[in-house]
Design a protein around this nucleic acid. Structure first.
Lengths: 419, 419
DNA sequence: GCATTATTTTCGATGCTCGAAAAAAGAACT
DNA sequence: AGTTCTTTTTTCGAGCATCGAAAATAATGC
């Protein structure tokens, strides 16, 4: 007898009429999330559900205040017949607060269930900010501003999500290390959750970058993408073909601190030879001015200074060109190692470093071609694009809204309608 | 209006009573696959389905010949009450042919639907085998032997699966590169499929290694594991925590040809600096005898010679110790790069190289500790284990049987029973 | 005011699960 | 041998969500 089969399946669970209903509700929500408001007929066509089911599900969700009819627009393109009534998200169903916490900047956004921005502010974060105050205090203080300025909306707050930089604990609730000084090992998720009475989750910025890029660029929808941020740090997110956006626990990498050359240049993290220690702004600056690679990294490099380096390289300055070459080499071999492990057909380079892509491109391509996978499977398509903020925000927002769709609103029992 | 949401979900599909039944049938099959034959009562408990549903599903599948009652065993442990009748796979429901095609060896196994080995043979593959014959001819010729020796079983052949070494096309039906000479770019899957009238699939050996290890070691069931083969090649498979075995398109890597040192030692693949060019048997041999690292690799290294190297290193020979140190360094930094990208909590080292683990261990641990992730997230647990053949076979067999469960037998409409 | 047309709802049938009760198949006891 | 007890397995009716077809709805065009 060979029942030596001991492997666990992924928590697979019994299917019944309840799970059918939940799944089809989620299907409707996810379709609306992607396509925007739709007439019931179109919704039936897009989801593959019958008209009868769409009617039933729609009635439920309208009664529950999850969806709303958009009766306003007259739609002049229509000729005859009963006019279509489009249904979309009920924007008053709730809202979420989104925080992007970065090395020297924080942005707070309040977004309703339909994905419309309600309120937003941005502020500079001093390098010693978290020496004076705890991360929890800092976040609660600013989130309270939302409460004061948007009383009505904040009554329906459903979720708070924070984008962070650094290494998260396996359970995703705790920052083990962060380039933001005094940030790691000072848990704040639970404190904030308690203060606002809603769940709080942490998300790695590099990963959101990847998911956001995918939402923003239709071409990446069904591709395996490595999204690389190059700026004051170097980060990467991965998304895989066939994965639904926002799904899968993969995708969070520590690309910037992958070791490029053992015993090499000194990195801000303290290790030697990280990709970041060759490709981040401080690394290029260091090399361009022939500072030894073992010298401690500059605390921060102003955008203007980085632009200056690009200009010098473009003007033909040998040392600066060399610095960008080393950066390209580090990124290129890093990417070649990535594609040796996972199948990435597209690469997006985002952030300030994308402005210098033309200075690094040759080295990146050489490095990619140097490995077997690059030669055999073909080189990925690399595209540089400077703005990364929109991608992070979009990634965070869509991830949270989709999560609410699937884990909260798809679940509500229809009995709630009659109560 | 912001319906700039264009991202595709993973082919999500309408759920109805049909998909409920399919999913629950799959749940039953997967439970039996893991646990072996079970009484209906236990099956209900394990799956979470009601007794009524187990009866219904069981009757269907018995009538369809997918399951069978095991009425034989008396089970003396029982005291009173109606005796339990265990149900298990109907071994005559079909069988699959499994081929492990390796650089100098091929093994053909015939396995029934219950996972019992029916027939097997192994043969040496000459280095010039595929100069003289095509891969398709070779495989058809030997698979025909099964047909002659197992007429009855082969009438119910359902599937042929081949484990290969090398880089597969994105659709997985075509070998783009292989260490087996003259193997790549000579497609054979379709020819064999035609000759035997069943589907044929190709599987990357490194990945099967990982899945097989997971079946064989209960400890790895719910872990993220990197399984490294060290021998005449260097290969790695990844399995992720939460993945069902056999699921997910991830897992196939080209670790051996990940570049360790740009411009470094010459690899069999023609590139410079691959991990394999430092850690495979031929690389250790080359370094141990102080042959320049740019010298062409030996075509093959007999097992006895590799054992001799280990003995020399154990005896304290400096050059050989150095060779194993370099190998450990390459593997260690490779692993450190892997854990910078994906979360791997466990590492298994399989193959002949596992015999030399004690000679490489210090270098591996040093390299892992050198990176930020290693320091912050903690080092993975590394265990060496020599035999890799069982893992490859088990991985291949379970993958195919599970696939049949989910994609074939879970699907059969119950109407087929009455026809 | 009536025909036309496209959208949406209603209605009856089907298929699946579930809980509870009934049936089945032995062991134990008298 | 017959009765009681225990455990496994099946049967039965209710509940629910889907679907296709038919009916109802709400406009336009003539």
């Amino acid at each position: 007898m060979n029942h030596l089969y001991r492997c666990q399946p992924l928590t697979r669970v019994v299917s019944d009429s309840d799970s059918v209903r939940r799944q089809n509700r989620a299907l409707v929500l996810s379709t609306l999330r992607r396509q925007g408001p739709l007439a019931r007929t179109n919704l039936a066509a897009e989801t593959g559900l019958s008209h009868a089911s769409i009617t039933a599900i729609g009635q439920d969700m309208l009664a529950q205040g999850i969806l709303a009819e958009m009766r306003d627009e007259p739609d002049p393109a229509r000729l005859r017949g009963r006019p279509a009534v489009r249904v979309g998200f009920n924007r008053t169903a709730g809202c979420v607060a989104l925080v992007e916490l970065e090395v020297n900047r924080a942005q707070f956004s309040l977004v309703d269930y339909g994905g419309t921005l309600i309120d937003r502010f941005e502020l500079a974060v001093a390098p010693d900010e978290f020496k004076r105050t705890t991360p929890a205090e800092f976040l609660v203080r600013h989130l309270t501003l939302f409460r004061e300025r948007n009383r009505r909306e904040m009554k329906a707050l459903l979720y708070i999500a924070v984008s962070v930089q650094g290494i998260l604990d396996r359970d995703g609730r705790h920052l083990r290390w962060s380039p933001i000084v005094h940030m790691a090992d000072r848990p704040f998720a639970d404190d904030i959750a308690q203060a606002f009475g809603v769940p709080v989750s942490l998300h790695k910025r590099g990963r959101l970058l990847a998911e956001g890029s995918r939402w923003l660029d239709p071409k990446l929808q069904d591709a395996s993408v490595a999204t690389v941020f190059v700026g004051s740090t170097v980060a990467m997110g991965l998304t895989f073909r066939g994965d639904a956006v926002g799904r899968g626990n993969g995708g969070a990498t520590e690309f910037g601190h992958m070791i490029h050359l053992p015993g090499g240049a000194l990195c801000r993290c303290g290790a030697r030879g990280c990709i970041e220690a060759y490709a981040a702004d401080y690394a290029v600056l260091r090399t361009a001015y022939s500072v030894p690679e073992t010298a401690p990294p500059a605390a921060s490099v102003p955008a203007s200074q980085y632009e200056g380096l690009i200009a010098r390289a473009e003007a033909g300055d040998r040392a600066t060109l060399h610095a960008f070459n080393l950066a390209g080499r580090a990124i290129g071999y890093g990417l070649s190692r990535v594609i040796s492990l996972v199948d990435a057909t597209h690469v997006r380079i985002l952030g300030p470093g994308a402005r210098a892509y033309h200075l690094m491109r040759a080295e990146i391509e050489t490095a990619l071609s140097a490995s077997l996978v690059g030669r055999v499977a073909g080189l990925p398509e690399v595209v540089a694009q400077v703005d990364e903020k929109e991608a992070v925000f979009r990634g965070l927002m869509m991830k949270i809204l989709q999560q609410l769709d699937e884990e909260h609103f798809a679940f509500l029992p229809h009995a709630a309608a009659t109560a």
